[in-house]
Amino acid sequence: MTTAILISIIMTLVGAATPILLAALGELVVEKSGVLNLGLEGMMLIGAVTAFGVTFTTGSASLGLVAAMAAGAAASMIFAFLTLTLTANQVATGLALTIFGIGLSSLIGQNFVGRTVSGLEHIFPAALADDPIGRVVFGYSPLVYLSLVMTAFVAWFLTRSRAGLILRAIGESDEAAHSIGYSVIRVRYLAVAFGGAMAGLGGAYYSLVMTPMWADRLTAGRGWIALALVVFASWRPLRLLGGAYLFGAVMTLELHAKAAGINIVPPEFLAMLPYLATIVVLTLISIAPSGRRNAAPACLGKPFRATG
């Protein structure tokens, strides 16, 4: 009995952590290239509604996932064009992207409100995925495994691959990287597109896996938590994984307390927890010993215009 509860808690935790992990991984790469995209929430919503719409009309959840990534990346290109080509302010543009995504997703989603889709299928055989114990390892949505693979990939990419090193160099010193011949703007475009695709994927998790039903503002500010997570993780992929699961635990607390009918604390206060936890964690990370404090890429948020 207690094992069953424990397993269900772990599974809720992983489920709650996965979409913010996916989105935060993308944002981490974007920020490592020196760009601050505050439009995460908007791109996630656009991904969520696209995944739902495509899955609903075609019946194929995998097609929905691909469409969500494409839509997230497309939305991020608006941001990229404005901030990278036209050197618009990144904070303002990111905010505009979020407001835009909220509007666009509820506009597209109005025909889907309350509809349901059949979500993604397990990748492991039912014998493993439905086993009361085995499901804690094999019973997740494919996106959960993908998020773990992507964590490892991003960690490898940033520290071991040539392209990753170039990307980091550009984030630390765009001028220097430019002067030795790297195309700052092109790399940043690619990073932003990757971030958009990952945010779209994270959004898709909400509409296809967590609640296979469309509702307005489905992501409820999780995109902002993902942004905070990148700061919390001091721009390190593995720490991001830990942070995402920590937030997953906080959100699980809310869900399980509700399910268990715990009435001592009003549900609204439990719903505040992830946001309060974000503030506390951001504060703690700022008081932490120096070294971590200056982990932000040096060129983060600063516009760049190449010499002719």
Partner: peptide, 15 residues
């Protein structure tokens, strides 16, 4: 919802 999208577009174009 179109209103919200419309307002965001205004900011996009301004930027």
């Amino acid at each position: 919802a179109a209103t919200g999208m419309f307002q965001a577009m205004m900011l996009f174009f301004l930027l």
